[in-house]
Write a protein that binds this DNA or RNA. Structure first.
Lengths: 303, 303
DNA sequence: ACTCAACAATTCAGTAAAGGTATGAATGTT
DNA sequence: AACATTCATACCTTTACTGAATTGTTGAGT
């Protein structure tokens, strides 16, 4: 196969149609340039120039090679630049894992600011539960995770990003609460949910919420009568909408609740207020080699 | 700038993710391969692989480089093949110069056979009068000429391709001939055209026809009463159609005559038959370096 | 905790390739 | 006919690549 310096030499001679002038342009002397062209011709098995001691002209094969040689050289230069830009973090791609709820709250904010502060960097979005994000962060298939504070795997570090609280979700106008019903929008003590059919987070994919709900119920002295498990907030809200029971969801999930669900703050007395705290964390692999990720982390520090 | 062997080395390592295996695939030993990758990384100013003694993985910069490196290498291979194909005449382009009349007779035949016999070769068509074709053949801007037997310039050689004859073109139903009129389609002695308004080929661009017409008139003892000059047959026929006079055109031009023009063979007695001969030649530059042209010439020899 | 196996990096010597200088050969020009 | 121009060749020096042997490091197994 020919070499890139040979292609450069060829293009220079083809444009100048003069070995001496081409050699000068290439910052070399004429004899080695002649030899390079001869080598190239030998490798391609054909004459590229018709040359006498008075005139140099392209052959048909040379005319075929010229535009292609230019294209190859251009692509090499562009590739060089692209790799440098990616390695400096100026360009690149970041895969973001996020929970369904973060997709409605923290993610859009982060993307908006990143689009301003780091143009040229593109984002690949993957909605994943926290544990799957953690796996992805270890394997490298996820660069940045927006997830719940679950136990971190080795090499993955995180920092708090947002706090939220749980609110009660009820079927609208339901009689589930009986005489303990509260006017729409009023805070509700968790005791009102005692023994009511509770739509619960699954222990595996949504252990963080599962444990938090149980802690809140225990703290309020209420019994959790779990009738159904689901791992995603939208699925739980769909059950509520169907009148199958009540559940607790992050306040930010109210924004995408279906019709037919009403929400109540949780009455914060008796120490419930301190327990009712949902954290969202930003997590990344400590050893990430993606410069765009490092740049994004620095950018996030500023807000 | 990086080199092609470095890109090959990079692609091999990126695909194998193992220096030893990649080295084997490249038919080399592992140490120089490691050095090639190091050189490439140095030239690009960034790590392309994250490597420990147990594991090799692509960095973001490496992942950016991989598809581009493949593309560059593919393009090099394709370029190599294309140049070889052009140099063998298997592919390529041939610029054909042709006169307006040849464009209706010899050219379509030649193109049809060439398309069968030399697929992969494309043709660039340029309608030119014979003298311009001759210039083009010398300069190299025309590879093959379909032209009249004019005086050849040095380096240009030719061979007869087709013979034709001149026929008389008259305005249909004209009274120009007076009592010498012949029934449509009947041969006409040139004497009938004595002193009639004659639409003539220009001396410069169509000297061959100009001289031939004058020879025919002289041989028939008729006086050529030239009233108009033109260099192209279609222009002369338009004048005839307008009733401005008579002219002589190659018989093959009858195929694209406008309505309102009638044709008569020239009466061949008194030695006119031998003079009335229009040659079309195939001409090319003896030193052409275009392999496709050489192949076409060989192909033409066969029919 | 120690040894072993795997694997990339380093060292060193030999060789192939690229560049430079001087010169030759061919072809128009004065 | 002498000269200028220009590409090709010969020869030498420097650079860069290659392979063999070796080292260093890191998981895995006992």
């Amino acid at each position: 196969m020919f070499s890139l310096p040979q292609l450069e030499a060829f293009v220079a001679v083809a444009e100048e149609l003069h070995f001496g002038a081409a050699a000068e342009r290439l910052n070399m002397t004429q004899p080695p340039l002649s030899r390079q062209i001869q080598m190239l011709e030998k490798k391609l098995g054909t004459q590229l120039f018709g040359r006498t001691s008075r005139k140099v002209e392209l052959t048909a094969a040379g005319a075929t090679l010229l535009p292609r040689a230019r294209q190859i050289l251009d692509m090499c230069i562009k590739t060089d630049l692209d790799v440098r830009r990616v390695s400096s973090g100026e360009a690149g791609a970041i895969t973001v894992g996020y929970t369904a709820i973060a997709g409605q709250s923290a993610l859009p904010v982060m993307l908006r600011r990143a689009a301003e502060g780091m143009p040229g960097v593109s984002f690949v979005l993957r909605e994943l539960v926290s544990t799957d994000q953690m796996d992805g962060l270890v394997k490298g298939s996820v660069d940045i995770g927006l997830l719940r504070p679950i136990v971190a795997r080795p090499g993955v570090v995180s920092r708090p990003l947002m706090q939220d609280r749980l609110v009660v979700a009820l079927p609208e106008g339901s009689s589930l609460l009986g005489n303990m019903a509260a006017p729409k929008g009023e805070p509700l003590p968790l005791g009102s949910l005692d023994r009511l059919p509770l739509l619960m987070y699954s222990t595996k994919e949504a252990r963080y919420f599962h444990d938090l709900v149980l802690r809140l119920f225990a703290s309020a002295g209420a019994h959790a009568n779990i009738t159904q498990y689901a791992s995603q907030v939208p699925a739980l809200l769909a059950f509520v909408q169907a009148g199958l029971g009540v559940t607790l969801v992050p306040a930010s999930a109210m924004a995408f609740a279906p019709a037919g669900v009403e929400f109540h703050e949780i009455d914060g007395r008796h120490g419930i207020q301190e327990l009712n705290r949902v954290d969202l964390e930003l997590a990344w692999n400590e050893e990430t080699a993606n410069p765009a990720v490092l740049r994004l982390l620095r950018l996030i520090e500023t807000f």
